[in-house]
Design a protein around this nucleic acid. Sequence first.
RNA 1: GGGCGGAUAGCUCAGUGGGAGAGCGCCGCCCUUACAAGGCGGUGGCCGUAGGUUCGAAUCCUACUUCGCCCACCA
Length: 938
Amino acid sequence: MSDTSLPKQYDPSEVEPRWLQIWLSRGYFHADAAAPSVPYAITLPPPNVTGSLHMGHALGSTIQDTLLRWKRMSSYNAMWMPGKDHAGIATQMLVERDLQRREGKSRHDVGRQAFLDRVWQWKERYGDRISEQMKLMGFSLDWDRERFTMDEGASRAVREAFVRLYEEGLIYRAHRLINWCTDCFTAVSDLEVNNVEEAGYLWELHYPLVDSDQHIVVATTRPETMLGDTGVAVHPDDERYAHLVGKKVRLPLTDREIPIVADLFVDPEFGSGAVKVTPGHDLNDFECGQRCGLPALSVIDLRGVIIDPAPETYRGMTVTEAREAVVADLEKQRLLGEVVKYTVPRGRCDRSNTVIEPLLSDQWFVKTEPLAAPAIAAVKDGTTRFIPELWIKTYMHWMTDIKDWCISRQLWWGHRIPAWYCDQCNAITVARDDPQACHSCGSDQIRQDEDVLDTWFSSALWPFSTLGWPDQSADLATFYPNAVMITAPDIIFFWVARMMMMGLHFVGKVPFRVVYFTPIVNDENGEKMSKVKGNVIDPLELVHGATLEQLLQRADETGLTKAAKKNLKKLFAKGIPASGADAVRFSLLAMTLPGRNIRLSMERIEGYRNFINKLWNASRFALMNMGDFDARRFAEILADWSPDQVRTELTLADRWILSRLQRVTHAVDQALDSFRFSDAANALYHFVWHEFCDWYIELSKPNLQRQTSGSQAPRHMQGRRRFYTQGVLGTVLETVLRLLHPMIPFVTEEIWQRLPKPSGLPAALAVTFYPQKKVELVDEATESDMALLQEVAVAIRNLRATYGLPPTQPVDAEMRLVDSGKRSMFESHRAVVEHAARATLVITESGDHIPRSAKSIIGSDIEVIVPLAGLIDVDAERTRIAKEIAKTDKEIAFISKKLDNEKFVARAPADVVEKERARLTDEETRKARLTEALEALK
RNA sequence: GGGCGGAUAGCUCAGUGGGAGAGCGCCGCCCUUACAAGGCGGUGGCCGUAGGUUCGAAUCCUACUUCGCCCACCA
């Protein structure tokens, strides 16, 4: 009868790989566009080919998988599109570093084509690592569809999109001030610049007026840029300078004379009220220059080196060198004023952390304003919903003040820009297929643009390029728009906004109906995980476990600082215990609340691992008692019963757990439907542990015994009771497994397979139906009866714990209650209390004081008395009851005060007043009972 | 400079107008044959501060304190 094949502790390392393999080999996760069911599609945010799974991926993908599995089980045509991103700049830098380390060569040493061959090799070698990791987490992606941002289809989509936007005038080439990273040696978009404040200096420079011995004073944080100054600006209303507007100054260190102009951007309150204008190296100044007709000079080149037209002495210097030289030279000429310490705003490259140089350069841009308008409207009118909604504001703020998007990058790894320049006539040819000749003059002397596109350009097309666009494919028709996009809020501008713009523009529909922004996963101290800090946790280390030594070894491979290592040792002194993919998934879901970040704590994961184990053991118990169970017969009987039969044939506990099961089914459905993942996880956690295990399983034990003697029930009833209990136990467990499966697929599948089930079910839990609430099994009266029985049982346990009675020692308890209805309820279901409290119960209406007993009052009028013979400590008991009375007094005072308030009685809703009155009566009765008990103890 | 979010039990956090909750921790008792990764019982809170609205505020409004995040061209 006992099933010894199941170990006491659940071992995920054996179970998880096995089911993974079976699910994949049976093709459960493949979706067909032609299927008749309602589509539900999610596109996986494509991870970088360079990467390995991090906690953010684990969280986002767990959420996606939970939704997909839930919908798949709910008969939707659920499709999860996998793919990977070429991650232009990130990958190129990694391969460049590798090349430098191994061979001491730069990419220029090996040449463009050979270098690209190496990147492709790199991609082949490391690209699949993350997919393997995702499989280990149990993610049900439709792997047959897997795509890459630089595969043939995606490349065709990129070309098509570029050409169309160009033809529509929404992509253009221009000579503009752009953000240049001298280290990555490429232009970057505004989004890739981090604005930081750093300690620096504010220098005052004196510019001599032409034809006068006076100076005008300007202030700057970058004195070297004065070499490119083409003007000095003052505020038009500034009386101090009014007479100087139109005059000229002699620019020190150069032989140039530059004009003084008036422009509104100058703040007369700041510094001297006069500003040097360097249109070639500052965005503000560039715009001022445009307004005032000042030319833009480039005195810093792409390497960050000073060039002509700066004076010869400075040419060849770096920006930093030039700064020192300029300051020294000005000081020599007594043209340097005050120098004060100053906090300077500075742009740093998101990738290399190098200071960004604003430079004039020829680049390609997307004209964003016309694209943004429909994307704004679609979020405003709810065609695409944001969850949590607070991100709408962020999105709107950025979108309504959107700048044109610089999309060309001076890199090699990426989509080459499909534009050709004619050597003969200088015309630009932009074409879908590589052209042989200039479209304007017909010359064959054409060269393709050397640059590639920003990696986010192909990402912006991803929701439809993966479905076959620009073809009108069946996939596109079925799975676009996606049901939901699950992503982190830090790429709302980089990605979400651009997918919205491109989707609406090219497909004419939003790319997804809902955007769910995941929390950020921080470490247990609430700090952002980063390699530099050494606090990074790899999800698979949580799954498989890792010793401190292993963690340190991994850290060494990524080149960790001493401080980071120390931090790592402190955080993971005990290593990371193996928890299994299910526990990691469940933990992440349980911690996911909208709009709140996650503090990843080992202890909590351990807690949820324990939950998985609890579920495992509850199942062991069920299986030990179900060897002879006919599941098919029970299912037929249950389906056949009228509500009356349910009431007469099943015990109170049976009906209670079935009713509670309906409630949790409903709660989970609601929670998942509104993306409240922690609610769903917690509802199931509570139901399984504290209702099913703590109460139902315990109460089922006597009914499962195959009694032969000592039972009053007739023989055939004994068998039937056991059979029905097995049935309810099995039904509840099986339903719970289905409810939990989208969150913890492995352990639920493993148990489900072993459970006796009605015939005709699918071969795996992964492809069964998700439970629906059965209204006819919800039983309010049974739930409140059960709640009362539980309260009495807890009260007896409480008394026995207070007086140190061991749990194994049975006690006699007496309960007294006047209400005859309740009394007969207790009579009928006394077994619940007796079993739960290990007590023999006597139920009466009233009685005399029992000497040497402890008493508890339940609600207002139920007395529970446990005779304690020699154990009772009268003083302690008096103190205990006095404390109860004090509590009651406080309540009575609180409620009385409310009811004495005429305004409350007059203005509060009648039902609220009535409730308070009833409460007062209850508390007063309770106090009377307690007082009697106290008196009797004298 | 602008915007957003948080402040509730020792810790991590639910709770958005009518009797302060969960998980973990802590204390006590128990290896009761599903589970010690467990069972039973318990302790613990001027709901950040100050005002206001209301019959009634953890919950709504205002200000403040404080922590965090995002955006921004003041030289």
